[in-house]
């Protein structure tokens, strides 16, 4: 960790974004469980360093694809949490005007393709965005977020092969949280590291601690700069843990208590808070950021709840351009 290179301001920006994701998700979970919020949710608690570390390495014009678990990526890309909260409530002010919901959240203006909620479905799309950047000689990169489970899909292999053959500016980010829904990775793949799979396509594959936001940022930065300067794709495996259920009311009983306990000790915000304190950032500053974030979220909830629903017949719009 080259922590001395970072200004306190930048470090607090990482912290703020991670806490914003955590508090957003906790608030959403509450709203969902109390029955206020419709639909289903796949949440990001525990994986915040992945989204924040990677997205902080991007510039305006870069584009990401996300998954059925998109909230963290959307926030890390700077999407307006009011429009996100409104989308979760199915309101017309939502980022997809109520047509997307939790799983299809996105805003192309902010560089987020609407969430691709079919596992593996976004991998070729991100590859195509990178292909387009290259064809149009644009100085941008595409980042493809996926989970461990997606690397068993055919599209993963087809995409890495094409990105390699065509030397595309795409960074494949595998957030390995050990579980595809309830299935542990060890039951569905023999490789010790998912990054090994990159070698089949002669793409560099790296495995790092995905709960260390600075490490994630630095690794992403290197891959992004490489891709931007014509050096081609990289696969980054981020080792992390989902400290909530897969979806909705899932109590995650398949996660052994010991494993869970260890994961909670190693969770990214706790880890980064200790680091900030060791850097001499005061508890008060850290606490004030948390409070600010909570206020911001309450404003978003209020905005969402007070927003109008779409008209029922709005169902018929937005099919064709």
């Amino acid at each position: 960790m080259k922590e001395n290179y970072y200004s306190t301001e930048q470090l607090l920006m990482f912290y703020r974004k991670m806490v914003l994701i955590r508090e957003f998700e906790e608030r959403v979970k509450f709203l969902f469980l109390e029955g206020t919020m419709p639909g289903t949710i796949h949440q990001y608690q525990g994986q915040e360093a992945c989204a924040v570390g990677v997205c902080s390495a991007l510039k305006k014009g870069d584009i990401i694809t996300t998954t059925h678990r998109p909230h963290g990526h959307c926030i890390a890309m700077g999407m307006d949490i009011k429009s996100m909260m409104a989308e979760l409530f199915g309101k017309v002010t939502g980022c997809c005007r109520g047509k997307g919901g939790s799983m299809h959240m996105g805003d192309i203006e902010k560089g987020v393709v609407p969430g691709i909620a079919i596992v593996g479905g976004g991998i070729p799309i991100a590859t195509g965005i990178g292909f387009g950047f290259k064809m149009k000689n644009m100085p941008n990169v595409a980042v493809c977020f996926m989970g461990d489970g997606a690397t068993n899909e055919g599209t993963f292999h087809e995409s890495l092969n094409m990105a390699s053959v065509w030397n595309l500016p795409v960074i494949y980010v595998v957030e390995n949280n050990l579980y595809g829904a309830s299935t542990h990775v060890s039951l569905v793949m023999k490789v010790e590291k998912i990054s090994e799979r990159a070698s089949a396509y002669r793409i560099p594959g790296i495995t790092i601690d995905g709960n260390d936001v600075i490490k994630v940022y630095e690794t992403a930065m290197e891959a992004v700069e490489k891709a931007r300067s014509g050096g081609g794709p990289t696969l980054i495996e981020l080792l992390t843990y989902r400290i909530t259920g897969h979806s909705r009311r899932d109590p995650a009983a398949y996660q052994p208590p010991e494993e869970k306990k260890k994961a909670l000790e190693n969770e990214p915000i706790k880890k980064f808070t200790s680091f900030l304190l060791s850097r001499g950032v005061s508890k008060e500053i850290i606490e004030s950021i948390r409070e600010e974030v909570k206020i911001e979220i309450e404003e978003a909830v209020k905005y969402a709840m007070e927003s109008e629903y779409p008209l029922p017949e709005d169902t018929l719009n937005d099919l064709f351009a």
């Binding site: 070729p124 590859t127 195509g128 387009g132 064809m135 149009k136 595409a142 055919g154 092969n161 094409m162």
Partner: peptide, 26 residues
């Protein structure tokens, strides 16, 4: 020469590539 793109035999893959590229104006 640069706009007739021959692909691997990866239908899901290159359909997705086409889609991704269309999102940025191709």
């Amino acid at each position: 020469p640069d706009r007739i793109i021959n692909t691997p035999i990866s239908e899901a893959g290159f359909f997705g590539v086409a889609l991704g590229s269309s999102l940025i104006g191709l």
